[in-house]
Design a protein around this nucleic acid. Structure first.
Lengths: 254, 254
DNA sequence: CGGTTACTTGATCGAGCTCAATTAGTGTGG
DNA sequence: CCACACTAATTGAGCTCGATCAAGTAACCG
């Protein structure tokens, strides 16, 4: 804010949750000043990782969860057979590593898509703060719940949606998340490759490429390398779910 | 069933976690006697639901999570467009409804696959117990973590696996879960329809049927209506992941 | 620049879906 | 106890969406 605070940039690494612009999206949301102070004590340290670096690998022992501060991070699973599945893209304010609590080791890996910084919340401090700050426990439940709901929506996407619906859903979701962060929801850079997108959406890279070409032809968006501009947001939304089903199809109901 | 046991059935509803045979698989796991007593107070009541009944519907307001005591329950999501995605099958000792904490409404629906009973843990009591019994908080984190990991494995299944691999994975997982509950892992009844299985695995009913026929032909198992007998467990396991990939394919790595 | 990687575009193929017909359970009521 | 309706499951035939294979182009980077 003030010009003179420039000198304090080194301190920026030590920025507290009080001053963090992400506070409203992040763990502190809904906490009072005293509670945020407690939370601040629990944050072990801020770490920076570069494009392609692992934050943690599948199977790593640990007890920490992380919150993205800047940049973006993908999480993925790999099978013995060599193929991998991207399970999430994480933007500033989003939490990752929740899979560590089962037996104190990560069941997924996390790689930075670009230079990124994260706040680390160690398991020990995490348990402490859940005990001492009830609001924090509630907040944590909310985040975990959201994560599960999101994963379920991804199951629906992979289980039922067409290629077109998948990409449209992905772009729409990304757009909304960026907008919440004060960025443009209509013009943004993709931090992940076509490869990663395809992997995440259960599609081949070629399919992603062709879909982008088609969306462009139809005037839905323009895309140049990784820069996407949504031209027709309503059109994009209308592609998210299939319309043609007259009566319920592939029903889960009895 | 028997006329004489009717008298005791009423008591069955009031069984405590102390006496429950599921304790080792369920929430009380790792808790001491005093802590289990606290947990017992938090369990609001036991409920019985019949085949096809909803435990809760998508969008229902609430704050409770449930643990299956007997029977089995499926959870599912539905889109506006009318199609649905089964996101889980829940066996005794397994928790469901964790998606309720985000904004105090269920983002999924839950339907009994057969006559089932559940223990309800209300949100209020749940928060209380997490505060007063730290071990319970740890336990909860573990369960949530496991849920997330499982969902991620399902993303991998839907995103990368072939139809054969999907069904094999499903049967193997079911077999293991039943075995943990003291039931046979080689001969068991499927409580869900082919429809539900197909929906869950992202496959058409016909594909499930054909796969069962093929597995039978290959001597992997026999299936008669919903009764499955695994004849060659090693053979089943070997079908879980693709072998042919020489070098990493569809990689998530950069 | 030359080499590497990311992306695009075209042509072909196949796993699994859809449609259709049949069979086998499962009640339900007379 | 059986006839009827209804749902669940199987089996066959053909088709389609998106994968795979192949080639070319464009950005990036030492």
């Amino acid at each position: 804010m003030t010009a003179s605070s420039e000198v304090l940039n080194i301190k920026a690494i030590k920025v507290s949750c009080h001053d963090c612009s992400l506070a409203e999206l992040c763990l502190p949301r809904g906490l009072n000043q005293a509670e945020i102070t407690e939370l601040d004590h629990a944050i072990q340290h801020r770490r920076t990782i570069h494009r392609g670096d692992h934050l943690y690998r599948m199977g790593d022992r640990g007890r920490s969860v992380f919150v993205v501060r800047t940049g973006s991070i993908k999480t993925y699973l790999s099978t013995g057979a060599g193929d991998e599945q991207v399970v999430g893209f994480h933007l500033p304010g989003e939490i990752l590593g929740l899979d560590v609590f089962d037996n104190e080791q990560y069941s997924s890996g996390a790689i930075a898509l670009e230079t990124s910084s994260v706040c680390e919340l160690s398991g020990h401090h995490f348990e402490e703060i859940c005990k001492t700050v009830p609001a924090m426990n509630t907040q944590m439940c909310r985040l975990v719940s959201r994560e599960i709901t999101h994963d379920h929506e991804m199951l629906l996407l992979l289980g039922k949606k067409t290629a077109e619906e998948r990409l449209a859903t992905f772009l729409q979701s990304l757009s909304e998340r960026l907008q919440k962060r004060g960025l443009s929801g209509t013009k943004f850079n993709l931090s992940m490759s076509r490869q990663d997108m395809g992997n995440y959406l259960g599609l081949a890279v070629e399919t992603i490429s062709r879909l982008f070409a088609r969306f462009q032809q139809e005037g839905i968006l323009t895309v140049e390398r990784r820069l996407v501009s949504i031209r027709n947001p309503a059109g994009l939304k209308s592609m998210i779910s299939s319309h043609q089903h007259g009566q319920p199809v592939r029903s889960a109901q009895k």
